[in-house]
């Protein structure tokens, strides 16, 4: 086996294992912290798709932003540690049925198109290409997205300050 393949399967195992912990951990805080390893594993998989810029942004946004938000949310919830959260709430039959259907859909999709060809792709830097595409061809969607985010930012600040005004 090639070195890269061994590494790929190691990263896969790492990601899936941490994702399993996220789903089945009894303590919510453990799930939240296990998300860290899932996100890092995902970044590793992006590198295998020769998407170096995406891998780095994945860590900046998901670990530096979203995970910190989730952790603060979990930490500030009352009695998060002492109460046991039960991972499985659904009746067994329903969840098995849903799982079987999803498995069939995925199996059909896999059988229609081979999707392992990407592994052999050459590693090429993507940052410059992404920058040019964003600022030339897809400038309008990019600007619209940034205005949307700016609106969300201002809205969040307004909501956070609203309590002070009433007093």
């Amino acid at each position: 086996m090639e070195m890269q393949e061994v590494l790929f399967y190691a990263i896969m195992a790492f990601t899936i294992f941490s994702a399993v912990i996220v789903a089945f951990a009894n303590k919510l805080i453990h799930s939240a912290f296990a998300l860290l390893f899932t996100f890092v594993g995902f970044a590793g998989l992006y590198i295998y798709l020769s998407a170096d810029f995406l891998a780095v942004t994945q860590i900046i946004i998901y670990v530096g932003g979203i995970l910190v938000l989730i952790l603060f949310g979990v930490l500030m919830t009352q009695d998060i540690y002492d109460v046991k959260a039960i991972a499985a709430h659904n009746p067994l039959l329903l969840s098995l049925g849903g799982g079987a259907f999803t498995a069939i859909i995925i199996a059909v999709l896999i059988s229609k198109k081979p999707w392992f060809t990407l592994l052999n792709k050459e590693f090429a830097p993507t940052t410059a290409t992404i920058g040019k595409l964003i600022l030339y061809e897809y400038l309008l969607p990019f600007e619209i997205a940034s205005i949307l985010l700016l609106g969300a930012l201002i809205g969040a600040v307004y909501l956070a300050r609203a309590e002070d005004k009433d007093k």
Binding site: F33, L36, V40, F53, V56, T57, I59, I60, V63, G64, L67, V68, L71
Partner: peptide, 12 residues
């Protein structure tokens, strides 16, 4: 960017 992203892991 790699260094900036790595430093956000330390926060966790």
């Amino acid at each position: 960017l790699y260094i900036l992203s790595i430093s956000s892991l330390a926060v966790i």
